[in-house]
Measured scan of single mutants.
Amino acid sequence: MPVRRGHVAPQNTFLDTIIRKFEGQSRKFIIANARVENCAVIYCNDGFCELCGYSRAEVMQRPCTCDFLHGPRTQRRAAAQIAQALLGAEERKVEIAFYRKDGSCFLCLVDVVPVKNEDGAVIMFILNFEVVMEKDMVGSPAHDTNHRGPPTSWLAPGRAKTFRLKLPALLALTARESSVRSGGAGGAGAPGAVVVDVDLTPAAPSSESLALDEVTAMDNHVAGLGPAEERRALVGPGSPPRSAPGQLPSPRAHSLNPDASGSSCSLARTRSRESCASVRRASSADDIEAMRAGVLPPPPRHASTGAMHPLRSGLLNSTSDSDLVRYRTISKIPQITLNFVDLKGDPFLASPTSDREIIAPKIKERTHNVTEKVTQVLSLGADVLPEYKLQAPRIHRWTILHYSPFKAVWDWLILLLVIYTAVFTPYSAAFLLKETEEGPPATECGYACQPLAVVDLIVDIMFIVDILINFRTTYVNANEEVVSHPGRIAVHYFKGWFLIDMVAAIPFDLLI
């Protein structure tokens, strides 16, 4: 008679799926529990143990900040960024110097990925580790590398530091407007667009060049630039800015003055950032001319202004700041037409079709709590990747769950009947059967004279019903998954307890 339990259901295979997918890609990662103190490590794979030199037993239950890997060259700011990422709910990448158990130093890129439950609360953290440099290539500990984003994938490793954006290309926007319009339909740009040429040739750093990471940081200074100062900065030398009595002219307006920039070969870094931020506020060169004239017309309804409409929906549905990093990277690809469009465009503009998908598509409701890094690593669709929660398995109709209350009560009843059979069957065979043979035949009273025979008949009927119930009862397979398919249940029961239950259900007393 089957006594099969499996009270692990309803099970959740999400954690096993993450481990299996990460292991298949030869990654070095740990999984931490966000619900406990210090976000203790609950799993670390073999790749991480080989990377740091510690065994799994030495890593388990330690804080996922990996303070046991810190050393003299470990930056405090990087460690603080990892700790801050564990307090938030967004994906974050941090470069930090770690030390192995043998004392060797290596520069590592740590990717902190939160995993949320159905309520939107962070319950786990996945920390992925990628070695960037070994100890002989690690720089000085005073050099802070965590304020910069990861290198873009479309640049060669040897040319990542030679990417320079020439400031004269930004200063000569109005001069290039006529050349853009003359391109017409034969050019790649839309009317009114501004073409910015980027020099990728390796050259020595000069005062006129600005690194790509500095251009990325310009967006942080746009908020500090007032509207009046932006307007004066875009007017140009024809209309000098008016300053109040006793007030000095704005240095932001002076930063885009061609006369002032041409007199000296070098520009201050602050002026460069502010000038680029001011130019980015204009949607095209037409807006710059309109600002000089004193009238700013409404933005025209053409394809170039609607190019950012799908980007707005993608940004609203993005799951991490990696989408913004990807957008900034692609927006700086050289030799393309940049349409400086305000994100607050007309909502009635139709979304044009684009061959290049900048932001990841909208994630469906079932995966809105899973970050983009987890979705990318697992390579699963929205119909396959579940949320991290207890999910009731989908069972067929008329199927009994093996952990249901009805099955528990039924098993206790069958257990009592088995005990009765084990006690009274030998007793009936030894004593009652002998008395029946010696006594007179009682054929007239039937079952009324033999109450134990009636009980034995009921017990046999219950055993037959138990066999039928076992054909529709779920079970737990070797992978700790609840199986509810009727065919698989029948095959599993035939290979197991079916023969024993059938022999126990045969009414031998009635056959004798």
Score class of each variant (00 low, 15 high):
Pro2Asp: 05
Val3His: 15
Val3Leu: 13
Val3Trp: 13
Arg4Val: 09
Gly6Thr: 13
His7Cys: 07
Val8Asn: 04
Pro10Asp: 14
Thr13Ala: 07
Thr13Pro: 08
Phe14Trp: 14
Phe14Gln: 12
Phe14Met: 07
Phe14Arg: 11
Thr17Pro: 11
Ile18Arg: 01
Ile18Cys: 06
Lys21Met: 08
Glu23Trp: 01
Gln25Leu: 14
Arg27Gln: 09
Lys28Asn: 15
Phe29Tyr: 12
Asn33Glu: 10
Ala34Asp: 01
Glu37His: 14
Asn38Ile: 01
Asn38Phe: 04
Asn38Ala: 14
Cys39Met: 08
Cys39Lys: 14
Cys39Leu: 14
Ile42Val: 12
Phe48Tyr: 01
Cys52Phe: 13
Gly53His: 01
Arg62His: 14
Cys64Ile: 09
Cys64Asn: 01
His70Glu: 01
Gln75Lys: 10
Gln75Asp: 15
Ala79Ser: 07
Ala80His: 08
Gln81Ser: 14
Ala85Lys: 01
Ala89Val: 13
Glu91Ala: 10
Lys93Arg: 13
Glu95Cys: 07
Glu95Phe: 05
Ala97Arg: 14
Tyr99Gly: 01
Ser104Asp: 08
Cys105His: 12
Phe106Tyr: 03
Cys108Leu: 01
Val113Pro: 01
Asn117Pro: 07
Asp119Ile: 06
Met124Asp: 01
Leu127Asp: 01
Val138Ala: 15
Ser140Val: 07
Ala142Val: 14
Ala142Phe: 15
His143Val: 11
Thr145Phe: 04
Asn146Gly: 08
Pro150Ile: 06
Pro150Val: 13
Pro151Ala: 13
Leu155Glu: 09
Gly158Ser: 15
Gly158Thr: 06
Gly158Lys: 07
Ala160Ile: 14
Lys161Pro: 08
Lys161Gln: 13
Phe163Glu: 15
Arg164Cys: 06
Arg164Asp: 13
Lys166Asp: 08
Leu167Gln: 15
Leu167Val: 09
Leu167Glu: 15
Leu167Lys: 05
Ala172Leu: 01
Thr174Asp: 06
Val180Trp: 04
Ser182Cys: 12
Gly186Tyr: 11
Gly187Thr: 11
Ala190Pro: 07
Val194Trp: 01
Val195Cys: 03
Val198Ile: 12
Val198Trp: 03
Pro202Gly: 06
Ala203Leu: 06
Leu210Gln: 13
Asp213Val: 05
Asp213Ser: 06
Asp213Ile: 03
Ala217Arg: 13
Ala217Met: 05
Ala217Pro: 15
Val222Gly: 08
Ala223Cys: 03
Ala228Lys: 11
Pro245His: 04
Pro245Lys: 03
Pro249Arg: 08
Pro249Ile: 11
Ser250Leu: 01
Pro251Ser: 13
Pro251Glu: 10
Arg252Leu: 05
Pro258Ser: 13
Ala260Arg: 11
Ser264Met: 12
Ala268Tyr: 12
Arg271Leu: 09
Arg273Met: 15
Cys276Lys: 07
Cys276Trp: 05
Ala277Ile: 15
Ala277Phe: 12
Ser283Pro: 07
Ser284Cys: 01
Arg292Ser: 05
Arg292Thr: 04
Gly294Thr: 12
Pro300Tyr: 15
Pro300Gly: 07
Ala303Val: 07
Ala303Arg: 06
Ser304Lys: 12
Thr305Asn: 05
Ala307His: 13
Met308Asn: 05
Arg312His: 07
Gly314Ser: 09
Leu315Val: 14
Leu316Lys: 04
Thr319Asn: 09
Thr319Ser: 09
Ser320Leu: 07
Asp321Val: 14
Leu324Val: 14
Val325Met: 14
Val325Arg: 12
Tyr327Lys: 07
Pro334Leu: 01
Thr337Gln: 12
Asp342Gly: 15
Asp342Ile: 02
Leu343Ala: 11
Leu343Cys: 14
Lys344Cys: 10
Lys344Ala: 04
Pro347Gln: 10
Phe348Trp: 06
Phe348Lys: 14
Leu349Phe: 15
Pro352Phe: 04
Ser354Glu: 09
Ile358Asn: 14
Ile358Gln: 08
Ala360Thr: 12
Ala360Tyr: 14
Pro361Tyr: 01
Ile363Gly: 05
Ile363Cys: 07
Ile363Met: 12
Ile363Trp: 10
Val370Asn: 04
Glu372Pro: 05
Val374Ile: 13
Gln376Lys: 10
Ser379Arg: 05
Ala382Tyr: 04
